[in-house]
Simulated scan of single mutants.
Amino acid sequence: MIAYIRGMLTYIQSDTIIVDVEGVGYEIICPNPYAFQALENEKVFVYTYLHVREDAQLLYGFKTEEEKYLFTKLISVSGIGPKGALAIMASIDVAEFVAAIEREDEAFLKSFPGIGKKTARQIILDLKGKLALAVPSVQDGQVEEAGSTNQVTLKEAQEALKALGYTDREIKSVVPKLQSDASLNTDELIRKALSLLMKK
């Protein structure tokens, strides 16, 4: 198992990053590669998970150990594979997501792509009580009910940007900066995103 990789971040693509380790380029699939954008051409430390299939060996990467842990737990849920887990994690705050599981918030879970009522219920059944200890901010009660509203707001802003013609690649590139301010409503998030996109 490859637990982590440390090397030079040489390239960012829509779904992957390339990290050079002493002349060997590791292609790492990430929920949001643009979360690493500020570190391009610099040394990075990436938590990794090696997923082995009959036809491929795929390396998944995460900025934090909590993100990696959540990914491994999500793919253990019936009906969720690595691709589905990545789609869920592309724009979440780990603590907010775990808090939603703890309070059995099916509506919040169903707001993610590919998650219907049955899968949302399965996530709660399989993971409730198993994640909070690994996410200190949930254990300490730092995540409030308002967290889910913020995620819904972010989703609404992303959908609006798609309707305006922006690609998933472009939208993903600004999501980390949009997540940094939980106080913004949907319209404010859209305006902030447009401002960031116009600077690119």
Score class of each variant (00 low, 15 high):
G23H: 05
F62N: 06
Y47A: 00
I29W: 00
T16K: 13
I75N: 08
I101M: 07
A132F: 00
I18S: 12
F112C: 08
Y11L: 13
A160S: 13
E170K: 10
R169Y: 03
L194P: 02
E96F: 04
M8P: 00
D187H: 01
I80H: 07
K200Q: 14
A134N: 14
E188I: 01
M198K: 12
T119C: 05
Y11R: 14
E67P: 13
Q158M: 15
K162P: 01
R169C: 07
K162V: 12
D93T: 06
F97D: 03
E66Y: 06
K68I: 13
Y26I: 07
T167N: 03
T10Q: 14
C30L: 11
S148E: 04
T48V: 11
R103P: 01
A3C: 00
S91E: 03
L109E: 06
G141L: 05
N185A: 11
S183F: 01
Q57L: 15
Y34D: 09
A107N: 12
L184F: 01
Y69N: 04
L178T: 04
E104F: 05
K172E: 01
V143R: 05
F97K: 05
A163K: 14
N41W: 06
I88D: 07
V138N: 09
T10W: 00
G165S: 02
E104I: 07
